[in-house]
Simulated scan of single mutants.
Amino acid sequence: MVTTAFCSDMPSHLVCASGAPRLEFPEVISLNVGGTYFTTRLSTLRRYEDTMLAAMFSGRHHIPRDAEGRFFIDRDGAYFRDILNFLREGELPQRDHVMAVHREALYYAIGPLLDSLEDTQPLTGEKVRQAFLDLLPYYKDNLERIVEIAKLRAMQRKARFAKLKICVYKEEMPITPYERPLFNSLRFERTASEAKLFEHHCEVDVSFGPWEAVADVYDLLHCIVSDLAERGITADQQCIGVCDKHLINHYYCKRPIYEFKITWW
């Protein structure tokens, strides 16, 4: 049974009716979800009691109506059909709807749907990808830097695109011939004094690395390009060489340098 404690979590357009007579609903409900119309059974909306829809139609809350008397939910109705289909028959959305339906399921607090979606693609793949990106706590900040630098350069040059130099490296480099036999795992450690000898910053706009995972440089490059694409930004990249900065004893950095071309229109 849904309790009145749910009132504090209700959307602002709903009014908690605690203390007022319990509202009665017809068996068949007409809905207006952001301008899109739906018809369903009251029992469908109440299928899972710990959801926002069950609370809204519990009789404890006032729900506004549109001019035609339909119950109004101030939410984009584009994916509400997928919500109803799950409540009716447990049907899951097609793959290209999964991410959007997941957002709606979060809003309506439909736990069983959230659990089912998180075991399907592309959400499963995104969880795996995010586990990798969590190894790079600066990843989102660097992504923002790429966007800001590219935007500034394009505006300064009045150009359709901008180019950046980005370093992406998995392990600390270089590994000397003496050290290489010891490098038999993903994790390699030097003493503080040894690390200081090799410490430097490549002459690039943004640098990613190092990290400890099976995922390699090309996996991270894919993440960068994909996440920029999610923001509507077209990015092409190619390796243009390695950092040739001299360190000590004839050793050089050798971290790979990539040129990113960000196209704005």
Rank of each mutant, 00 (worst) to 15 (best):
E118K: 06
Q94N: 06
C202M: 09
H201E: 11
T4Y: 07
L182N: 08
I262P: 04
T234Y: 10
R46K: 09
D76Q: 08
R88L: 05
G111V: 04
L164Q: 02
V2M: 08
M99I: 10
L143H: 08
T191I: 08
M1F: 12
Q130V: 08
Q130E: 11
L114Y: 06
I262N: 01
P21I: 14
L133G: 00
C239H: 06
Q121W: 12
V28C: 14
E91N: 13
R190L: 08
F57Y: 04
D9I: 14
R60K: 14
K170E: 09
H246A: 13
Q94L: 13
V98T: 06
S43M: 03
A159V: 00
A55C: 07
K165E: 02
L113A: 03
R70L: 05
R47G: 00
S18D: 13
T39K: 07
A150H: 04
R81K: 07
Y79S: 05
D9V: 14
R190Q: 01
H102D: 07
E104F: 15
A5V: 15
Y178L: 12
W265C: 12
A192C: 10
A235D: 05
M155H: 07
F183Q: 06
K261H: 05
T36M: 12
A162W: 06
C7A: 13
G59F: 01
E259A: 07
R187T: 12
D236R: 11
E171G: 02
I63F: 08
Y48C: 02
G125R: 04
P93W: 02
R103S: 04
G69V: 05
K151H: 00
W264C: 03
N85Q: 10
L14S: 00
E259W: 00
A154I: 09
L133D: 01
D76A: 14
T40A: 14
H222R: 15
E259I: 00
T3R: 12
I83Y: 02
I240K: 09
D134E: 03
L197F: 00
A55W: 06
L14Q: 01
L220N: 04
Y178G: 10
E189V: 13
D244A: 08
K158M: 13
G35A: 11
I110N: 07
P11I: 03
R60D: 15
R160E: 08
P21Q: 08
I63M: 03
L133M: 04
I233D: 02
N184S: 11
F132L: 09
A229C: 01
D50F: 07
E89I: 03
G125W: 00
D82Q: 11
A131N: 11
M56S: 07
C243E: 08
E91Q: 11
I166Y: 11
R88N: 15
C223K: 01
